[in-house]
């Protein structure tokens, strides 16, 4: 699993945020489009794509996209 691939899948959960705006150091919860539904989508994406179960606290404890990537990777 590499971060580029993860960012592509993460970006798919957004409709109005272009992938160019989503770099590893972006604080995703500050994005305009971020919502509880997108949080659930990210959890479902991790399940479907990586077979990893993220819980709400993983999202809560992650600030940047890279933090989230690390959370998924630590559970692989």
């Amino acid at each position: 699993m590499d971060i580029k691939d993860f960012i592509e899948k993460f970006a798919e959960q957004f409709d109005d945020t272009p992938i160019e705006n989503l770099t590893a150091e972006v604080r995703f919860k500050e994005l305009d489009e971020w919502s509880s539904l997108i949080a659930l989508s990210v959890i479902a994406m991790a399940d479907e794509e990586y077979n990893v179960t993220l819980v709400a606290t993983d999202i809560r404890n992650s600030e940047t996209i890279e933090d989230l990537f690390n959370a998924v990777q630590s559970k692989l």
């Binding site: 509880s36 659930l40 959890i43 819980v55 709400a56 606290t57 999202i59 809560r60």
Partner: peptide, 9 residues
């Protein structure tokens, strides 16, 4: 609901 929601939520 297991751990789908954080304490803050």
């Amino acid at each position: 609901a297991g751990r789908s929601y954080s304490d803050e939520d």
